[in-house]
Design a protein around this nucleic acid. Sequence first.
DNA 1: CGCAAGGTTGAAGCGCATCAATGTAAGTGG
DNA 2: CCACTTACATTGATGCGCTTCAACCTTGCG
Lengths: 167, 167
Amino acid sequence: MTLPDGRRQILSFLLPGDIVSTVLLFEPVSQCSVEAITEVHYRIFNRNELKDLLLKHPYLSDKLFRLWIDEKARANQLAVDLARSTADERIARLILNLFDRLARRGMARDQTIDFPLRQHHIAGATGLTVVHVNRVLSEFRRASLIETNERSLTILDPIGLRRAANM
Amino acid sequence: MTLPDGRRQILSFLLPGDIVSTVLLFEPVSQCSVEAITEVHYRIFNRNELKDLLLKHPYLSDKLFRLWIDEKARANQLAVDLARSTADERIARLILNLFDRLARRGMARDQTIDFPLRQHHIAGATGLTVVHVNRVLSEFRRASLIETNERSLTILDPIGLRRAANM
DNA sequence: CGCAAGGTTGAAGCGCATCAATGTAAGTGG
DNA sequence: CCACTTACATTGATGCGCTTCAACCTTGCG
């Protein structure tokens, strides 16, 4: 989401299989924009076909509600994190979060995940400055919580990182 | 929403006519709790009856989607505000927001609204401490932006307050 | 009266922003 | 192949915004 003053807030990172937002399934609302960091495969839905389909197959509605519930829960959690957490906690949670979501997709090996985010993406998602993101990541590396190669990230000390995240 | 450490984050203030959350219409999920500040009139829905009703009357589904869209938009805006605004902006926005929502319901007279919130509620909603909320409100009063009586609030300088809110 | 809830004010300090400089690697055109 | 640029990461110095801690005041209430 881009602010009037040109800054931006990243509200979520989409992983393979995610839909952009349940809201968009019904209305072409564009409070926000979507940007690709990696190569992307995507598909689109025809809104009218989708509505007909939902009326015909109630079990699809149930699946949709589930998505909706999850989306709202994550939105709430995001607000809480942004309002109540320190920089360390926000960044540690972001990493753990991405790790869990990728692991659930079988996209984590050992404790390592692909990590195409630049520091300014982390800053955009956590509401911090790039400079401070850099310091926190350096601190995490110095404490041997994580290790970062060019485009991947390894969690060396899951317990320590979870402690930093206050989780 | 109550945090593990006992603090809480207020995600929204419900006004007459609001539903608690569209999510709750379909699943008894309770990530959050609801607390009454004033006397309250409420009604409840039977989830199964509601689902049947929605299948029979598509125009109801449309209304529901509208609620859903608004709810998500407000959740996003909340995250952005919490991540990117100063204390002054957050508090000014909270006041302007409540004022607009009440005005739309015909519940504002002149520039005055009922305002049953205590300072700790404002703190809970903005992610600030009570002490700082107090200072900001004092500042707003000194600058003649607002005036507060026991349980009401008057916007003396809408333009100035909007400027403080960065809107 | 004593107590609880809410509001106000001051002093001190930390967390993060801001500003600025420096480094490195990859890409681009002459 | 070199000069230049662009993107990203890193580091230091300084300061503001907000928290924290603490005290004190007012009001309403059992």
